[in-house]
Design a protein around this nucleic acid. Sequence first.
RNA 1: CUCGCCUUAGUAUAGUGGAAAAUACACGACGCUACGAACGUUGGGACGCAGGUUCGAUUCCUGCAGGCGGGUCCA
Length: 650
Amino acid sequence: MTVKKVIQEIREIINKSLIDLKYEVIEYDVSEPPKTEFGDLTTNVAFLLSKRMAKKPNEIAREIVDNSINFQIINRGNDSLILNANAHISGHINFNINYVNFNNFLVRFIEQNKLLLPNIGQNKKIVIEHTSVNPNKSLHIGHLRNVVVGDSLYRLFKKTNHNAIVLNYIDDSGVQVADLIVAFKFANFNHDNIQKIKFDQYCGEIYVKMNELYKNNSDLIEKRKLVIKEIEQGNTELSRFTTYIVDKIVKQQLVSCWRIKSRYDLLVIESQILLSKLWEKTLNLLKERNIIHYSTEGKNINCWIIKDEHNEEKVVIRSDGTATYIAKDISFAVWKLNLVDDPFTYNKFSIQWDTSILWKSTVDSENTKNSPHENNLFLGEDKPIKVITVIDSRQSRLQQIISRIINELDPNTKNYIYLGYETVALSSDTVQSIGMELDHINKKIIHMSGRKGIFINADDILDELHKKAYSEIKKRNPDFGDTSIDEIAEGIAVSAIRYNLLKQDLDKMITFDMKDALNLDGDTSLYLQYSFARAMRILEKGKDILEEFINQKNDTIRFDLLNQKIELDLIKEISRFDIIIEETLNTLNPKILARYANKLSTKFNSFYENLPVLGTDLLLKIGRLMLVRVFVNILGNLFEILGIESYSRI
RNA sequence: CUCGCCUUAGUAUAGUGGAAAAUACACGACGCUACGAACGUUGGGACGCAGGUUCGAUUCCUGCAGGCGGGUCCA
């Protein structure tokens, strides 16, 4: 509603120019120029027109400005947000903002707490699935990328008034869990009274050991087949034991997820999907629509198959009648989109850090009365406007196949979104530093592997960061008590990890380096938190003066006094908030928010170093105090979305 | 074999069909009697290669090279 509003006004003016001067009304960009000398906003309309009519861009630009835009700006008078326009020799048309009007408008807008966030979501339903770590090990740093991306999107949707529901898929019927069950039931591993270490971490270690054992013990592999079969059938001693172990692990995994301030609404349990007959319903749908075919010849004889975009066959149901992972995933997708009747009932699994209830899907009809929603429907009657699944890019092919099938089933909607991201790998320095022996240590990056035991545990890196932050805070704030240092250190550690994993592009692999990750200088969350704290200190000290001034109300706040280049820069950056939010909603790329928060803080720090707030005349002081207040408001909102803790002293 | 993603300074990353390619770490030089130096000011250093489209390509297209991943009735 701010820079955006200016852009709107510029578009109105240009469009009118095009009509007046009998140019074709075309699509063009209005954006910020690379250098502030070129003005506040710029357009490429002259270049685009030039392409169509063999006339030089700068001639067109000059004509539009001289013969139409200038008159329009004069006619708009003092209320306009645009001060002037000029045609640059290059062909760009540049505009300057009328900051006297603009500042007034912006500050009042934010002070009225409209936050530049209109009711974008209108309480419409969004389903987000993230985390979904196999329940046989603890979370490593790579899993955290998934958690943080998913959770930040959840927070963004929530903030923009969407009815966002978070799912965590628990694959308890695959090989990885079966390995553990074999370990406990048939290979004499202990699962009781594990005290020294978190149970999920303990299981991760067993998993590595089991993979060694399998190598010369084919009997155990037979046992694994048995376990998988019983889990799929359900209601046996082995399947109940599996549920018991899986619950225990998931609880420990959630401790790590909650630690970085992620939260969920529902655990969807894969074995329950299998038991629920959801697949049969989905299968019927697929048969009706002729999406799935029975193969009567070739290598996939007697299998149910689908064809991918290259006409290659994918097996959905094996010749022995069992379903493959594709079948499970299609069923789940169909359920998320509310395309079939909900077969589940719901149990309370636990209470989370934000006091919300975490539910768990079951097919156990005895618990019907615990259901969170009428008719047992977790997702309710209405269909979600978006279903977002956050999964790493190794599954992109599978997810594309599923998206295609879903779109065939429900062609009116394009709301099933696979949000892929590249994996997190380890730098060779880091692998060496954790004392792992590797044959290919000369490689620059090494992929994590739960099976081989190569990974950086999520809790371990948080502990390291916590320790470092603790000693730094103590050094700087000798007057703080130990518990409050501890609390702040934890907040800094969590924020640092979240920011670190969010700030770069989803389709770029992150090379995790321990030394870099522990760094708290420069482009880190602490830089943002420090800026926030600086601003808060100014507000604390100027609080009385500001309140007194506002209460007396015998003078208006003089935003026109905020006319230094540095403060105008800050103001303009602040006023891009709504554009940034919309862009992130459209692209589902949280790094946009992280980058923006950094840029905003940089501009604030520049303001802070160069322009005094408290040591100035009353009217200027009041104006700058208001600007600081607006900055704190906007940065605070970004913190809530990114999951960064804010402190007024750190 | 095949499909997908990636390639920008010593390192890790931004960004863009057009005006001087941005930031952090590292390296060099400055600034605390100050609304907090976990900060600021400042210097050197980069668009993998070859074609094409275009008035104009680091950006779009094609090919190549390098890095990584997926594809098997495992999940």
